[in-house]
Write a protein that binds this DNA or RNA. Structure first.
Length: 271
DNA sequence: ATGGGCACCTGGCTGC
DNA sequence: TGCAGCCAGGTGCCCA
């Protein structure tokens, strides 16, 4: 899946096409997403106009007149804007059709994504209400991480990937941020110092901002919302580079699994 | 409360 | 060439 920069890139890509547009209907080709798509979705959305496209963590929030569509891309989901009548390809599960002839099309090979509608405050939804701060907001800083981490023995990499602590730090950017901050991923969260957490919070912000600026890392199944094949890629220092030389010090990059996820670091640059 | 592990699913790649 | 096995960007939930 898209990590946070990819979700934000998607939000920015689709927003200008759908804000102010009226939904005519919804076509569900395969309702078997992470949770079954509501059979009455089309009836509930038809006639409503998109007022805003927001993001909380990696959830996209499409604000309508009376409610919100909450959409998650899972591991392999993507959204595209296509003209009505464009033949669907494999895994094009849901289409939201607009009166102006455009279609917001959700594709997700692995079907870990989700899409549902609520007329309550989306931020109060069970899946969203307990989330930690957004990494790019001021409330998230090194002092916050330091306070939250006292007494926590798990690996600091898993700590920063915990959505209750901070949202939006996925597997790639967790390794990359720890590299920039010079902290080894396996260290217990409670053993990382306040000064190091300040470095880490700064690193997380800069790594995510840089990736957003670049339009999201290009991964196998991420497609730009407008269908452009022009791919972007941020410069990865450690992720996926096991056995290769560190760009900074030349030390061989190592890999180890933490919490069932591959984790990469440079033993020369990270302590 | 915390942490560990599993589950959900398809597709691409590797190596025999 | 075929196929088994392994790996992949997430995260909710169950259990100890």
């Amino acid at each position: 899946m898209p990590e946070l920069p990819e979700v934000e890139t998607t939000r920015r890509g689709i927003a200008p096409h759908i804000i102010g547009q009226r939904i005519s209907r919804v076509t569900v080709r395969d309702a078997r997403l992470r949770w079954p798509v509501d059979p009455a979705l089309s009836r509930k959305l038809a006639g409503q106009t998109v007022r805003d496209v927001a993001r909380r963590a990696k959830y996209l929030l499409i604000t309508l007149d009376r409610g919100s569509v909450i959409l998650h891309l899972g591991m392999s989901g993507s959204l595209r804007i296509v003209p009505q009548g464009t033949p669907p390809v494999a895994h094009d599960h849901v289409d939201i059709l607009f009166a102006n002839g455009l279609v917001l099309r959700f594709n997700d090979p692995r079907r870990f994504g989700s899409l549902f509608y609520t007329e309550a405050d989306p931020l109060e939804h069970k899946l969203l209400c307990a989330l930690g701060p957004e990494p790019l907001e001021r409330a998230f800083d090194g002092d916050y991480l330091f306070e939250k981490s006292r007494g926590r023995k798990l690996a600091c990499k898993l700590f920063i990937m915990n959505n209750a602590i901070v949202v939006g730090v996925g597997n790639i950017y967790a390794s990359e941020s720890l590299f920039v901050a010079g902290i080894r991923p396996g260290r217990a969260a409670q053993r990382v110092t306040r000064a190091e957490y300040r470095q880490l919070a700064t690193a997380i912000k800069s790594v995510l901002r840089k990736a957003i600026r670049k339009g999201g890392t290009t991964l196998r199944d991420f497609t730009q919302p407008d269908g452009n094949t022009g791919y972007f890629s941020i410069h990865l220092n450690v992720y996926g580079r096991e056995g290769e030389a560190c760009h900074v010090c030349g030390t061989t990059i190592r890999q180890k699994v933490f919490g069932q996820r591959a984790t990469y670091w440079c033993p020369g640059c990270q302590r």
